[in-house]
């Protein structure tokens, strides 16, 4: 079955990321497919390239990157993202900011990518803040 997942919570502010990631890994174990993981509201902060994980605690960014390495698309709402400081190099240049902040391999996308992923998928599941 094909799933689209949405992450609404910021790192450390909720279990949104942990729930979404563990669920995604279980999906892949059972040979389901993930159409897209969409980061919305404060969930866009998951895509920041700059956090330093406290020693001995989980490194969320590294875990997202590991999930992506299994072929999962990590898509960040561009409207929610840029106003919260999540900037790709392209957006950095457009708004003339000094540094970009979007981690590889996240991409900034429009809300249309949420709706089309919902349309493509058999299931849509939200992990709220």
């Amino acid at each position: 079955m094909k799933y689209t997942l949405a992450i609404h919570g910021a790192p450390y502010a909720s279990q949104s990321a942990q729930h979404g990631m563990a669920f995604a890994e279980a999906l892949l174990r059972q040979a389901h497919t993930i159409e897209r993981i969409f980061f919305f509201h404060e969930g866009v902060l998951q895509a920041l390239s700059t956090p330093v994980a406290p020693q001995g605690e989980e490194d969320l960014l590294q875990k997202w990157q590991a999930l992506s390495a299994q072929g999962v698309e990590l898509a960040v709402c561009i409207a929610s993202g840029i106003k919260r400081g999540v900037l790709s190099e392209e957006e950095r240049a457009r708004y003339e900011k000094t540094s970009n902040s979007l981690a590889e391999p996240f991409t900034l996308v429009g809300l249309g990518q949420l709706i089309s992923a919902i349309n493509e998928a058999d299931r849509y599941i939200e992990f709220p803040a």
Binding site: G112, L114, I115, I118, N119
Partner: peptide, 10 residues
Amino acid sequence: AAMVGAVFDG
């Protein structure tokens, strides 16, 4: 998001 959903014929 709701408006985009409607634009996509949802």
